[in-house]
Nucleic acid binder design. Sequence first.
DNA 1: CGCCAGGCCGTGT
DNA 2: ACACGGCATGGC
Length: 226
Amino acid sequence: MHDRLMTAYGPQNWWPAKTRFEVILGAYLTQNTAWKAVERSLGNLRAAGALSVRGIREIGREELARLIRPSGFITRKAHAIKTFVEILDAEFGGSLSSLARVPTPRLRLRLLDLPGVGPETADAILLYALGHAVPVADEYLRRIAERHGLEKRAPRHNYEALATLTREAFADVEEADKNQLFNEFHALTVAVGKAHCGPVAKCEGCPLEFDLRPVRSFPKASLKKV
DNA sequence: CGCCAGGCCGTGT
DNA sequence: ACACGGCATGGC
């Protein structure tokens, strides 16, 4: 899949953000939200000088909520983002580098313990902001796995099963290369997902093989949740 | 106008 | 364990 998608789409150069903290903000803001809307929110934050740890630290929740309005769920996301910075300050001296030095398993659990951080957001932050080599699964990968019948190896196609599926697929890769591969694979998954993996798959021209299964036989409900 | 987006969480079974 | 609905907003 990775090779096929790479051939079709080329390197995606993710994450589309300049700083580590910008990646983290994007990870929160893009939850069930189109990236286009996230870009607008990030633009608002930049204009307000709030695109940094200090910037978020210094603005109030209401002001933050107003700035991220385009990407929705503003009350929850504003609270979640403020909490992240509070924890960063309280436990890591406000240093992302310090946070990044925590061993992967413990760091992942700490992130998951934060409000508004589920498995995908935690792994996106780990991989794209903190440099840890973890796979990121998402709704598109879930649909791809389901429509290709990969759930035989992951009976309960939940998040962890998809992550494991990805880890196993890249098991023979050099440890030093895994970060880059997980990075690219998730970005490519989103690329093919946007083009072909909506609620109703558009198999036309898809570099994958969605015709392995009759897509229309999947009830809408089965495409909804991880 | 209706569907949905690079999820997460509380609640009910 | 798993399903379901709410969370907010704007693009298409």
